[in-house]
Each structure stands twice: as structure tokens, then as C-alpha cells.
Nucleic acid binder design. Structure first.
Lengths: 257, 257
DNA sequence: CGCAGTCTTGATGGACATCAATGGTTGTGG
DNA sequence: CCACAACCATTGATGTCCATCAAGACTGCG
């Protein structure tokens, strides 16, 4: 077997300084020496199979995580068993921040596909961040990004119609794919329609219908998990409720303020 | 005039160590010496009249704020002029965290009544936090609280019916009033019905009707800005959709998952 | 193959938005 | 102090977006 070689590659890749994501992630804007200190914090990366939990609501908190490859969903479950998806995490994105306040995770995180993450035990991260001010600052920056993303989601849920929500969701994915230097107009969705619907506060039938509608409006090409954005301009327009190009049911709409 | 005396009181009150809120706020769990360092960070508190902005979406970021007395709303405005309220801030609560990522505020904050805040210029806060690890840790904790509150709001928007949303909102206020050692069952709402509706993703008429419904179900006593919670137990039940005690329109409901 | 999970499409209904009208409250200026 | 305006709050009648119910097609896996 070639497990020796694989191990070497893993060892090599372990270091932040050679990680393809280091411009997006915690190391951003940190000098080489500090980055080596950061490497001490990053424990073995963990790999999760599809559907496996990274942590569960109620677990005691001991580490933050950064997605390395693959993707996660985070969600909360109510006592009655229904769940609400809070977000999806792509490579370079931080997970677990909500647990800093109570030393317990308030939500669960689960792999949507085979996914690997960097584990940052918080005690060590805290200690190194103290010695490396730039790292501490960057940590706050990344956490603040999380806050901003949640705010954006809230606006979507509070003010937008179903179609605008889906358009906004796709735009967001597209933009993040772009940052990862993937083709921003060819999305391979790691999550199910159920997950998308749940995330957007809709039901799966509605999402399915909207995909259909956007497809025969020429905005998208939908083929199961693969979405091609044919008209990014129209997609952007749909985010703001510009309702050109929608055959189903003639449209007059006045949004609530 | 007695302005000299008032000034002395203000001077006295300025210090975190004698602030009535220090158990809830940044100083929590910090020793006396460290608290004096924190005092150096807290610049003059500012007082805002009702309706006045603390900061506006797009402003450059230079400070975090803690509400001292009164209350704020934070909201984002879309290019089309509609707005979404993200939250209301009561004494002891932190405002402005979303700006850490981009050095610009992503939302606006405005006083709902005569309100005073402590201003924490971020440069100094960052510097002192570096020297006082416990403060840094507490800062993260308080920020994390913000994240958790937003998550809670998201679940409300994604999964709950109108009545459950309003009940959840009132419960949350009641709890926070309790922490401030006010009567948790007598709420004096600083915000308008429009604000409540906006915050909950509803329209004002719906909120008004729901207040009416809950009133003649015996859960509340509603008198303009003053809400008395007569049956806290029923209010809690309403948060989970237990729809006992609702005269209007007989009820069968199955929530979306 | 068969079965379970996922996705799509159609028909119906309900929760809440919209439209409309009125009364109450607050603030301002003569 | 009153009059006026601007805003806030309540209540009723109507409409619509999307959830619900139902059924079928497709995919993937043991």
C-alpha cells in the first residue's frame, strides 16, 4: 500500500502556510512566523463521512473548526423535533462560534458530503492569539463575518418572497464559489432540496417549483444537483424582486415595509 | 443650579466597578485591577434623544457600544428603502459587532427613547484586551451571545407562526427585563407596533390583532405601551404553538419541518 | 428487483398581507 | 389652551402567496 506517501502529503498539507485557503481563513494577513505558531494550534484535521455530525447541540465546547474541503450544515432542533438550518459552511469558513458564550454548542453541525475540517482547540487558540495580536484581530474579523452572514439571512427571511429568497441563496453560493476559484456559474449543490427549503423557511415543493420556473425563464439550467446560471444578471435582478421573466401567474407585488 | 452635583454623580457612575450592570456586561468575571484598566477604555458615555442615530449603515467603524440606560434598535436598509430590524438592545447589551469584519457598520442603530451608551473605542479596547486575557475572553463571550441571539431570531422567522413569534418576542423581553431586576411581567415597550411587526417579519395589523387575541384569551393585559403578562405559563405555551386559549378561528395546525 | 429517499407537478385551502376606514395619542405653534 | 397635523393603533373585508395534501417519476442502494 502507499499509505506512507499519503501520510507524507497530509503532513505537508497540514501547514497553514501552504494551505490553498490561507488567504480566506484565519491566517490571512499574518506573517510567516506567526503562521507557524498558528500551526501549533491546528490539531489533526478530521474527516467526516456524509451525514456524520461534527458536533451536536448540547455538546461541551472545546474547539472551533474551519472547513477544509467539502461542506457542512449547521442547524438547531426544537424540543418538538423540527429543525431549522442556520447556514451552510464551505471551505475556509469558521464553525462553532455560538458556543463561546456558554461553553456548550447551541447548534449541531453535520457533513453534507465527505468533508474534512481543521480543529482548533480553543484553549490553545486563545493562548496563541494572546501572543499574536494580529491573529486575535483576525479571529474577531472572521467571527464578525459570521454575524454579518446571519444578519443577511435574517433580512432574507423577514422581507423577501419565496423566489427572491431562492435567488439570494444561489447568488450567495455563486459568490462564495467564486472566492474559492471555482466557476461561479456552475453550482454543484451538496445539500438536498429539503435542506434548501428548510434554510429558506419554505417547503420543498415550493423550492422545486421555483427551480422549474427559473429554468424555463432561461435564468438557470437545472439538472438535479447541478445548477448552471445562464443569466447572472437576471438572477441578481430576481433578488430584489424585479419580476421580469416569470411566466407563472401574472405579477403585481408590493413588498411589506 | 446643581449641575456641579450632577456632574459628580456622573463621574462617580462612570466607573465599571460601581456600575449596576457590571455583572451582565464586559466587566463580568474580571478582577478589580483589570476593571480599572477597562475604565480607561470607556470614553465619555453619550446620550441620545429618541429617534437619534448612534451610527449608520456605512459609517466607518471606530467603537463598540454598550447600552447603559434606555434602548436601541438595529436595522438594515435595502437600496429600495425598506428596512429590516435585526434586534433591540437593552441595558448591558453590546452593539456594533458586525462592523469588526469590514471596518464599516453594516447596520444602523437608533435610540428608541432617551438612551445613554458607553463608547468603547476599538483600538483601545483591543490593546487593553491584549494585556488582560480575561477581558479578551469575556469580549468573545459577549459577542458569541450576539450570535446566539441572532440564531434564535432566525429560528423564529423560519419556523414559527405569527402568534408564536409574538409570544416568543414577549418572552424574550420578559426574561431580559428580569435580568435587569425589573418586573418581568410588566413590560413597557419602548418600540412601536410597526417596529415589532418589522422585527418579526409581519405587518402591523397582524401584530395588533394578535395582541387583541391574546388579551381576550386572558394571557395579557394590553394597554398601549404597557403589557402585563397575566399568565406567563400560557405565554410560554404559545411559543411552541400550543394553541389552547385562542377564540379567533378554530385551530388545526401542522408546522413545516 | 424492490424499497426508501428524493424530486417534481397538480389541486385545494389557509394564514397572513393588503386595502380601507376610524379613533387615539403626541407634539407643535399660534 | 386649543387646534391642527402627523403618527400610531385598532378593526373589518378581501385577496394572494405559499403550505398542505396527493400522486407519480426518478435515483440510488442493499
Amino acid at each position: 500500500m502507499n499509505s506512507g506517501v499519503v501520510l507524507d502529503l497530509n503532513q505537508l498539507r497540514r501547514h497553514c502556510s501552504v494551505c490553498a485557503l490561507h488567504e480566506l481563513c484565519l491566517p490571512a494577513g499574518i506573517d510567516r512566523q506567526a503562521m507557524e505558531r498558528l500551526d501549533d494550534v491546528v490539531r489533526d484535521r478530521r474527516t467526516l463521512e456524509k451525514g456524520k455530525p461534527l458536533f451536536r447541540q448540547g455538546d461541551v465546547f472545546h474547539a472551533l473548526y474551519v472547513v477544509r474541503s467539502g461542506s457542512l450544515k449547521t442547524y438547531v432542533e426544537s424540543p418538538t423535533g423540527e429543525s431549522q438550518i442556520l447556514g451552510f459552511s464551505l471551505p475556509g469558513e469558521l464553525v462553532g462560534v455560538d458556543a463561546l458564550a456558554n461553553d456548550r454548542h447551541l447548534c449541531s453541525a453535520e457533513a453534507l458530503e465527505r468533508t474534512s475540517v481543521c480543529e482548533l482547540p480553543f484553549g490553545q487558540l486563545d493562548r496563541v492569539a494572546r501572543e499574536v495580536p494580529a491573529l486575535n484581530r483576525q479571529l474577531l474579523r472572521v467571527i464578525s463575518r459570521e454575524v454579518a452572514a446571519e444578519q443577511h439571512h435574517l433580512v432574507t427571511m423577514g422581507k423577501q418572497q419565496a423566489q427572491e429568497r431562492l435567488a439570494t441563496f444561489l447568488r450567495s453560493l455563486s459568490e462564495r464559489y467564486g472566492r474559492l476559484s471555482r466557476d461561479p456559474n456552475t453550482l454543484t449543490l451538496p445539500m438536498s432540496r429539503y435542506d434548501i427549503a428548510n434554510y429558506l423557511g419554505l417547503v420543498v415543493e415550493t423550492v422545486s417549483r421555483l427551480f422549474g420556473r427559473m429554468e424555463n425563464a432561461g435564468v438557470l439550467e437545472v439538472s438535479r444537483k447541478t445548477i448552471r446560471i445562464l443569466r447572472p444578471d437576471l438572477l441578481t435582478a430576481l433578488c430584489n424582486g424585479s419580476s421580469e421573466a416569470v411566466p407563472e401567474s401574472s405579477q403585481v407585488r408590493t413588498p411589506r415595509s
